[in-house]
């Protein structure tokens, strides 16, 4: 589902978002504030996401637990909820 291409796709998505934000920001005296805030927010959030994604792309360590019961098996497998 998510692999290396996600990075490229996300960049394209953010660029498109920024273009849209730039041209569709409400006109008037607050236009600069709208543009700056939307574009900067988008890139900040993207940076955060990208760093997290990259950190888990080729992880060097795997999760380890010693308190699991065998019945847990894989607990909530794919998409399940722990709550």
């Amino acid at each position: 589902m998510a692999n290396g291409w996600s990075l490229l796709i996300s960049v394209i998505f953010i660029v498109v978002f920024c273009i849209v934000a730039w041209f569709f920001s409400p006109k008037g005296e607050n236009q600069t504030v709208w543009r700056s805030t939307l574009v900067l927010s988008a890139w900040s959030c993207w940076l955060m996401w990208a760093i997290t994604f990259l950190a888990q792309w080729h992880p060097l360590i795997n999760p380890e637990r010693s308190d699991l019961r065998p019945e847990y098996v894989n607990g909530p497998v794919k998409g399940g909820s722990m709550f």
Binding site: M1, A2, S6, F53, N62, R65
Partner: peptide, 12 residues
């Protein structure tokens, strides 16, 4: 218990 990675999948 050591978890194993699902092949070719990164948490999105």
């Amino acid at each position: 218990v050591r978890a194993e990675r699902v092949e070719g999948y990164t948490y999105p």
